[in-house]
Design a protein around this nucleic acid. Structure first.
Lengths: 190, 190
DNA sequence: GTCTATATGTAGATAGAC
DNA sequence: GTCTATCTACATATAGAC
């Protein structure tokens, strides 16, 4: 705690987080992370026994980051629709990254869907958190199918990122986000 | 043409097509393709100079396959909405593969979005074909924003495949497809 | 805790016999 | 056209000095 070691560990996780996003998990090597951090390759195994332990740590870090975003949306308003709008704003906030490399969560899941069950489950964690948070908001709007609407909203946002990234189309994000926010505003309390 | 060589070339492309889908492009090695076809590794370089030449050939093959599907939808009906419904049926038709490995086109684009421009452009080709075909159908419904609606429809379908694959949720495909087809039926001629 | 040197495997790609 | 043997680079991972 506060030691040099914990600091290095955090540096590795931050660099890996970024690289897993921009290059993909399998396409990121220890050498890449070493170059990004200045920490020698062999040193990594003091902190992590295997590459997928780094993945676990990256996902933990992401749970923290996106958990903070969810909390921020909660504190911004008590109105569920406002919270949903706040969540959808991520599309605009991360627009620059999305058109180049897609969604960090979605692309990780898509990549690791082609791997062992173990890795799939890890990558799914952030989606799970978002899904249940979104479902809470829809529940607060008295929907009985709150979880289904949560999935719908995640699917809409993922579809937007996939196509915006495939065609590197910034305008498509703007247009789609406007439509999505219209849809959210149409989700009135029952 | 009709020679043994062309036959082997086709076997390589078919095996690579399948493996690029189920394991991803980078995670597929020449050894994997060799094992799948029985054709020795070193032999591949007689047909393809590099791995990305195999990718080009795979995309060509996919353009053929999905082009045939588009033609089939055209022949099935002259009514644009019927054609759009036919296109959306792919979600049900390929359901088994989608929940396990996602969409072959979408996941390829997502993976290669993290690589050089060259590979990105190749992977985008099938989406381009679908996009313009869908836009034709919306144009036939007298929409001035036909291309935008084509993008919307692709985005919706991609979002469905990403989330269905992430949570391996078959029911989500069924439910979402029904909603999508409701949306298509609402696209009445202007 | 830190770092170098290295083990072991496999990747994409090539050479050259047949 | 077909196949074996092999090159070079780099992957994950380890050993062990400091």
């Amino acid at each position: 705690m506060g030691s040099k070691g914990e600091n290095n560990r955090q540096l590795i996780v931050e660099a890996a987080d970024q690289l897993f996003y921009t290059r993909g998990y399998h396409q990121t090597s220890f050498r890449d992370i070493a170059d990004a951090t200045g920490i020698p390759r062999g040193n990594f195994y003091y902190y992590f026994k295997t590459k997928d332990e780094i993945l676990h740590a990256v996902v933990e870090a992401r749970l923290q980051v996106y958990g903070d975003i969810l909390n921020a949306c909660e504190q911004k308003s008590n109105e569920p629709r406002q919270r949903l709008l706040c969540f959808s704003d991520m599309l605009a906030h991360f627009e620059d990254n999305i058109i180049v490399t897609g969604c960090p969560i979605g692309t990780l899941c898509s990549e690791l869907a082609k791997d062992e069950d173990d890795l799939q489950q890890v990558s799914r964690a952030v989606f799970k958190m978002m899904r249940s948070w979104l479902a809470e908001q829809f529940s607060a709007l008295n929907y009985s199918d709150a979880d289904a609407r949560a999935m719908d909203m995640l699917a809409r946002m993922q579809g937007i990122t996939v196509m915006a990234s495939a065609f590197q189309d910034r305008d498509f994000i703007h247009r789609s986000l406007a439509e999505l926010q219209n849809w959210i505003n149409g989700q009135v309390s029952n």
